[in-house]
Design a binder for these strands. Structure first.
Lengths: 119, 119
DNA sequence: CAGAATCCATTCGGATACTG
DNA sequence: CAGTATCCGAATGGATTCTG
């Protein structure tokens, strides 16, 4: 399902000539389709630099392996920055990169609205 | 993974007392996490009432079974309206419900931005 | 045309156990 | 504390076939 960036970004078809083409599936969208992904960005955007444990508590229900995966994916893509402190016990903080903040700005209205829909 | 609405909407934990809780995973978010879901809403929002075949062409790469599933899910949840015409050959058009338009408004900034990120 | 049904490979994510 | 590694069932989605 996950295409490499070259392949997915060069997919061309007639309907993509217009400026209103939402067809692309690759890139960020691929990661955003995974569980807890959108919430993760918004949580970090809301509480600022956040520690692993805090995020784990906030995203009620995530398994450590899933959270770990999501975190790595976003770091890899440049949406999260990982700060590691040389302390004992170890402390790590995740925060949004500028790109991550842009993403968060577009995610917040969605999630906030989605939450209200649930009632 | 898909919880029933009761279960997912009654999940309560301490960090959800604040107005900035994005934890809920159920409801629309569940469907939005599926492939082509966000694009589907935006495509219909952009080209207006759209036929099955047109959507299939626009969402380059979807299988008919997947598109069919996504369409049904959104109709079921009240985000899409399905108009069937008594013609031969049969014609069906999908369009956003008011709820669907609200969703679309929050999705468009995201997808538009995501598309630009790919270059 | 618009889709439902079936089959199946792949992916995903939870549980559990284990480290630096 | 902050993960990683492994195992494994469940969910997802593509391909294909068929139909009103």
């Amino acid at each position: 399902m996950v295409k490499n960036s070259e392949e997915s970004s060069t997919t061309v078809h007639s309907s993509c000539d217009t400026p209103t083409c939402y067809c692309p599936i690759g890139g960020v969208m691929d990661v955003l389709n995974r569980r807890y992904a959108m919430q993760l960005i918004c949580v970090i955007g809301t509480i600022g630099p956040a520690r692993y444990g805090t995020i784990e508590d906030t995203l009620d229900g995530v398994s450590s392996s899933t959270l770990s995966a999501r975190l790595n994916e976003f770091v890899e893509l440049g949406y999260l920055f990982r700060k590691q402190y040389a302390e004992v016990p170890p402390r790590v903080e995740y925060e949004l990169t500028p790109k991550g903040e842009q993403l968060c700005q577009r995610l917040e209205p969605l999630l906030e609205w989605a939450r209200d829909q649930e009632d």
